[in-house]
Amino acid sequence: MSAYPHQAKLERMTAVIETTGLTKTYGAVRALDGLSLSIPRGGVYGVLGPNGAGKSTLFRILLGLIRPTAGEVRVLGQHAGDPAVMRRIGSMIETPRFPPYMTARQVLEWLALAHGAKDAAIDAWLDRVGLTEAANRRVRGFSVGMLQRLGVAAALMTKPDLVILDEPTSGMDPPGIQEMRALIRSLADDDGVTIILASHQLLEVQRVCDRVAIFNRGTLAAEGKVSELTAAGERLRLSATPLAKIMNVLGDKATLDGDAVLAAIPRAEGPALLRALIEQGVDIDEARWVGADLESVFMAETGPARTDAQVREALHAG
């Protein structure tokens, strides 16, 4: 029998989250603007977007902390805010805070009582997030990274079917980030938990997520498998001499990348291009397909960042 009690029901469910026309306004500000999104069951789902894109607002609605202005949202097949559904969700929104007079173990004992989780394996979870040695220390002395770990343990110890993590690696050192990544993957792969996480660390998201949604100004800018999104920007990287000849052959499909050329062509045209270049006397040292990273996709969908010159100009103007 699975350690996760609702697993069988989840097997029959295709989407854990479904929103239709979800809108949330704060005065004149539209934090979410008619968002329609379906998050499939299983795996790790990344929610990306610049600050103010609506990620945290979506999470807060999912967790019943705020109510949407319009639209519908279903969580695990039920209306968001349904207590029966809420008990199947674990969450950590931003850097968690805890009563400072409590130790790490006491925090988990308190939350286990609050959640009615009498069988919560508190010591096992403290161990799993690397807080065994700090278990009896008061949380008022904890670093941000330690608070994050404790927050993750608090989110997971009730064996939820769905876990929502907002910036789970914020404030963590590199080994901590690596451990957290492994923990998230193991929960998704071994325990069958669906994990939704938001992060600004795009490399981490690319490494750990199966699918991502990119938000921009409260709307869905892009959604899909990480491999599919990054494949759309796939290019052939050629280290060869002379570069000028390659540039002539490819025209505006070529861009310089250090001492190599990136050719924006479909994968099927690769062999023909290589033959053509060899016939023209180009000496090819290396040719390999490189995918676009998630950062490129993100920037393409949300608009470019300001250039160094623009930042300097803004500083001088200020």
């Binding site: 019943g64 902390l65 809420m86 969450s91 929104i93 805070r97 805890f98 939350l111 959640h115």
Partner: peptide, 16 residues
Amino acid sequence: SDYRWETWRLITARNS
């Protein structure tokens, strides 16, 4: 306390 320590978010999801 839950306003002061910002801990509502830890408990609201699992109880009415």
